[in-house]
Design a protein around this nucleic acid. Structure first.
Lengths: 187, 187
DNA sequence: TCATCTTGTGTACGAACGTACACATCGCGC
DNA sequence: GCGCGATGTGTACGTTCGTACACAAGATGA
């Protein structure tokens, strides 16, 4: 049956982006391991043929999807920090970020893990991660010296991860305490 | 040809462990995504049938392999820290750990990423990660107060990750500087 | 109106996968 | 010696995968 009446072609300019979003949903649910053309196609509500039409294989799709994750994460971090006008407000912004409402949602964290593992084998994505880190570092650089920026950046990363595993959450006061220690010049 | 002369059964008590080791090699090279029974069997030099004989499906094998990763990482961390007899030596141990010779080798880090992603979907492995974190926390607890332990633990995690991505490595003096800030009571 | 280009889709094919299972071989009690 | 569980292996089957490709349908310009 090659003349299927349901196969009406409809213009759909956002199709490619919708597929990428669907791919991220599939990654969250099944892992990179379980992300197949067929599953993504079903999740996006597009025919299987659309996959090879819009993307140059699964790696291409994953690359685009993870790039988007990196940019979104970076934008969320930098955006929140940009609201700060001085060191004190920057510290509050960092508390917000670590406490979990801005950046370290379960979905974002999970996608980050998948991204790290994926990027470890794809130099192109490693480069994107470097850009992401550099953007974070520069945003912090408005308020802190370079070494402190690195420490804060690493702390955000580590506390985000551990916070998602550890059942005993830290409260804002404790997080602030720790951040202030890092910001205080040695001594 | 059902009477294959090469199919001599030889006793091999370490076979199961060898398969697990091979599985980790395959994970490092191909990712969890590319870890299949056939590939692991070839890497371990065992017939395909051995996979289903020793393990209850791929998930079982991955579970055992990642459990081993977690225990090895934990042991390396705790072991190095146990050599310290006081706070000063503990700080030096942390510098060692972060600087990369003890814990954050590329292989270990990569396996950690895969583990995090895997554990996010398997509650049993999440429990193992909690144990791992708790063991680290307890080892640190001999020298520092609980909040400082959490901060140090998170810092080790974050700096290990960022250090593997960032081309500009920190030297031991800078790492020590940062650690000392965290250890210094607020003020 | 019609030739033609762009956009999109359904289907088929070969490869690789997990798993089941019949069978071979060994160690051991008798 | 000799059955007989326990241990280990080769192969075959059904499923799912990525990709190729012939073809349908709207758009466009003459």
């Amino acid at each position: 049956m090659s003349s299927n009446p349901s196969a009406i072609r409809r213009p759909d300019p956002d199709r490619k982006q919708r597929i990428i979003n669907a791919a991220l949903d599939v990654i969250v649910e099944h892992g990179v391991q379980g992300t197949t053309h067929r599953r993504v196609a079903k999740a996006a509500g597009v025919p299987l043929g659309s996959m090879t039409y819009h993307f140059n294989g699964m790696d291409d799709l994953l690359h685009l999807a993870f790039t988007q994750v990196a940019h979104a994460s970076s934008a969320a971090f930098v955006g929140r920090l940009a609201e700060a006008g001085n060191r004190e407000e920057a510290i509050q912004a960092l508390v917000d970020i670590i406490a979990g409402n801005i950046w370290s949602t379960p979905r974002t964290l999970l996608l980050s893990y998948e991204l790290y593992a994926f990027a470890a084998r794809k130099p192109a994505l490693a480069a994107i991660m470097r850009d992401w880190m550099q953007a974070s570092r520069e945003a912090l650089g408005c308020f802190f010296d370079p070494l402190t920026c690195r420490a804060l950046d690493a702390l955000v990363e580590g506390m985000g991860i551990h916070g998602s595993v550890d059942p005993a959450k830290l409260d804002r006061g404790q997080i602030e305490d720790i951040i202030r220690r890092l910001c205080t010049p040695h001594g």
